[in-house]
C-alpha cells in the first residue's frame, strides 16, 4: 500500500469566518468536490494541492465542504486502522488471524496430500470401450432370422419326423388338416414319396400333404392308430378343407400349427435362437 501524505481525519482547515462580503456561500461545483476528494486522498500533486489550499482559505463554503469530507475520511480511517481500536478489539482480531492461519495450514496440508495421492496413482490410458458395429449386429440379426426362418420351414416341412419319431402331437392341437394323414390309416408300411418333391418345391397347398409323407422318411414313427372309419372321415374333411381354403387361411393354419408345436419343441438351440432374435429386435 502506498503511503499517502494526509492528515488523519482532519481534512482542510476551516476558515475562521464565513464569506461576509457576499453573505452567502458561493455554490460548489462537482469539480470542487472532485478536487477536495483527491486532496484528501493524497492524489493531487504539490502544485495543485497548494492552489487548492489557497482556495480553501478564500472560499469558506469550499472549506466547510472540505471539512465535512475530511471528517468522513477520518472516521473511515478509524474503522480501518487497528491503532484506533481498543486493545480488546486488537486482541480479538489477533485471535481470529491465529485461527485462520491454523485453518489455512490444515487446508494446505489436505491439498498437498491430495495432490500427492493423485500423482502417485497415475491412471493409465482408459481402456477403449468395446464397440460392436451396428452393421455387424444387423448382419448377425439377419443371419439369425434367416437361420430361424430356414429352421422353421424345415421343421414345417418335416414336422415331427425330426424328433426321431418320439414326439407326438395330439391331433386335437394340430388342426383338422393335420389329422388328414393319408398314410396313417392303414397299418401297412407306407411307400416313400419324399424324394418326389425334392426336385420341385411344393406350393403351400401341397405342404401339408408332403409333410405328412415326409414323416416316414427319417425313421419309422409309430403311426397313430385310428379307427378305420374315423381316419377316412378325417382325411376326407381335410381334403375338403384344403381344397376350399385359400392361400392365406392355409398359411394362418400352418403358422398356428407351428406355434402350437412350440409347446413340445425339444430343440433348445432353436429356442435360444428365437430368444436371441428377440433380443436383437429389442436392441
Amino acid at each position: 500500500m502506498s503511503k499517502k501524505t494526509r492528515d488523519r481525519g482532519q481534512g482542510p482547515r476551516k476558515p475562521e469566518k464565513r464569506d461576509e462580503a457576499s453573505g452567502t456561500a458561493p455554490a460548489l461545483t462537482a469539480e470542487d468536490d472532485l478536487a477536495l476528494s483527491a486532496l484528501l486522498d493524497g492524489e493531487l500533486d504539490s502544485a495543485a494541492a497548494e492552489k487548492l489550499r489557497a482556495q480553501l482559505i478564500a472560499q469558506p463554503a469550499l472549506a466547510e465542504r472540505g471539512a465535512e469530507l475530511g471528517e468522513l475520511s477520518g472516521h473511515l480511517q478509524n474503522l480501518a486502522s487497528p491503532s484506533e481500536r481498543s486493545e480488546a478489539a486488537i486482541q480479538l482480531e489477533g485471535e481470529r488471524v491465529d485461527r485462520m492461519q491454523a485453518a489455512l495450514r490444515v487446508r494446505l496440508a489436505a491439498a498437498s496430500a491430495e495432490s500427492e495421492a493423485e500423482s502417485r496413482a497415475v491412471p493409465g490410458p482408459p481402456a477403449p470401450a468395446r464397440v460392436i458395429p451396428l452393421r455387424k449386429i444387423r448382419r448377425e440379426g439377419w443371419a439369425a432370422a434367416a437361420a430361424l426362418a430356414a429352421g422353421l420351414l424345415f421343421y414345417l416341412a418335416f414336422g415331427e419326423g425330426l424328433g426321431g419319431g418320439e414326439t407326438s402331437v395330439p391331433s386335437s392341437s394340430r388342426g383338422e388338416f393335420v389329422a388328414a394323414e393319408p398314410a396313417a390309416p392303414h397299418e401297412e408300411p407306407v411307400p416313400e414319396p419324399a424324394l418326389e418333391w425334392a426336385a420341385s418345391p411344393p406350393v403351400l397347398s401341397e405342404v401339408a400333404e408332403v409333410s405328412e409323407g415326409a414323416l416316414a422318411l427319417g425313421s419309422n414313427p409309430p403311426a397313430p392308430v385310428f379307427a378305420p372309419g374315423e381316419a377316412e372321415s378325417d382325411a376326407e374333411g381335410a381334403e375338403i378343407y384344403l381344397a376350399e381354403a385359400g392361400q392365406e387361411e392355409l398359411a394362418l393354419a400352418l403358422e398356428w400349427e407351428v406355434l402350437s408345436d412350440f409347446d413340445v419343441i425339444e430343440n433348445l438351440e432353436l429356442l435360444e435362437l428365437l430368444d436371441g432374435l428377440d433380443r436383437m429386435e429389442r436392441i
Binding site: M1, S2, K3, K4, L40, D41, G42, E43, L72, S73, L76, Q77, L79, A80
Partner: peptide, 14 residues
C-alpha cells in the same frame, strides 16, 4: 473504491 482509498490508503492507481 472509497474504502481502499480513503480508509486503507491505497492510491487511485492501486
Amino acid at each position: 473504491a472509497l474504502w481502499l482509498s480513503a480508509a486503507e490508503g491505497h492510491s487511485y492507481a492501486e
